[in-house]
Design a binder for these strands. Structure first.
Lengths: 251, 251
DNA sequence: CGCCTATTTGATCTGATTCAAACAATGTGG
DNA sequence: CCACATTGTTTGAATCAGATCAAATAGGCG
């Protein structure tokens, strides 16, 4: 029998929670009792739909997913991107009806966790419940930051900002090497996330490239000038509330 | 000695929590053990500042407050408005450093609650902890909805939407009579919340008035045509996750 | 190779900003 | 009770960031 801790689904969950707050051995053991039902899904598949009442939440093990909703006029707003370790619909544990949808952007490995098991875990291990609290609060902080971008920053700044954010988040869970990471997101999707048209995303991206701040091709992001990009994106990672140690090694 | 339940600070807290989920008598009693230190503050006063590490959270008893942050170029984004019963910085219980600021918009009565007391309450009364979970998750849902507005809806729709939201929230805690409520918020503040210039807020508001949907003068909002305003604002209150009973009586 | 999806380019249009000034309402001190 | 200061609302004109429309390229991949 394989060591459960070595299973990628538990491993990603550890790394994510660890990026928020250190975990004791006890707490890790506690986590290992969580039943995770892994499933592989193709790209552009709905996971949960607005109006659903899911009986469990899903952990992203591999791939990229996003939350979104459509306007009455059929315009899409993407609220967040999610990567390995994230539990995008953790909220459905407390808010029974989904007020937005969830889909894959790339092929994904997802692990489903029954709400009951989650609730039990949090009852048995309050420290883990606290980390989950922190997680949903950080989520909210990211929403605020995106709001700030969409409401008050230029397209150029906004794009730089979100790319900084993605890189830092990827680094925090060990999915980036140095200033490079996977980013298989189309310009149209970026636009839907940032409240911009595809055309304008394309042009602003060209500017960022022109300023030698980054490269973004073939589904992968390379930051050429981290300080420059941070400045261009008005990016200060405080709002991500990463654990101090993690944040420092990323500086 | 006066009945504590009659004190307005506890009363507002009850009403707010009640709007999210029904409370048992036991739970109400539990709440009454929370120490609330009431303070009166003038308008446009900072309550907590970005970077602070508050030792308690504050309950709004009377008046209007908002969360906000400034861009590097000095543009302000308001993230949310808060009314009686709200605990705008509940998050500081779990995220020690504030990533945004909090200020009063009008003269306010605020009640401060030490984090320690809050934590104890939630430990002693898990049902109340659950309601608080729901509350911060609803907060996040409102952020998403605002994001949607700023990113994808026209100025006209956006303003209609936020006014619907305010009225529903006021009604939920008993601060509105019918289709009328206090709304002592300037057009500049509305603009900072919706990512619009004051001038454009003014013009869109005139349109809404012109369509006989509402009146907004002297710090008070009157909705003349609720269905019309909902439609104009692409407003569906699902995201507010109000308790069913409350939602129905507001329909 | 040919199909499909994503990126890029060009031209035009428009919702919203900016700047500037007038106007209204409210409050303050003499 | 009035003069004046302050803050908020309204109007007009000019400008611009970003949208839209349309078409050309460029990649991937069966």
């Amino acid at each position: 029998m394989s060591e459960p801790a070595e299973l990628p689904e538990y491993n990603m969950l550890f790394r994510k929670l660890r990026s928020i707050s250190p975990l004791s051995e006890d707490e890790k053991h506690c986590l290992l009792t969580l039943p995770l039902h892994v499933r592989t899904i193709g790209p552009d598949q709905e996971i949960v739909r607005e109006g659903d009442r899911p009986a469990g939440s899903c952990l992203v093990v591999e791939g990229f997913t996003c939350r979104y909703k459509f306007t009455a006029e059929g315009k899409r707003q993407i609220f967040s991107f999610h990567i390995g370790g994230d539990i995008p619909d953790l909220q459905s544990l407390h808010l029974k009806v989904m007020d937005h949808s969830l889909m894959t952007l790339t092929p994904c490995k997802l692990a489903f966790i029954p709400h009951q098991s989650l609730a039990e875990l949090m009852r048995r291990c309050p420290r883990i419940a606290d980390v989950m609290w922190r997680d949903v609060l950080i989520d909210a902080a990211i929403f605020r930051e995106w709001m700030m971008g969409i409401g008050r920053r230029s397209a150029y700044t906004r794009i730089a900002h979100v790319l900084c954010e993605v890189l830092v988040k990827m680094r925090a869970v060990g999915l980036a090497n140095g200033h490079e990471c996977e980013l298989p997101i189309t310009q149209a999707e970026l636009g839907d996330a940032l409240g911009l048209s595809t055309v304008h995303v394309n042009r602003s991206l060209q500017e960022l490239r022109g300023h030698r701040l980054l490269e973004l091709r073939g589904g992968s992001l390379t930051v050429l000038n981290w300080d420059g990009l941070k400045k261009a994106g008005d990016f200060d990672p405080t709002y991500l509330h990463l654990d101090q140690e993690i944040e420092e090694e990323a500086a």
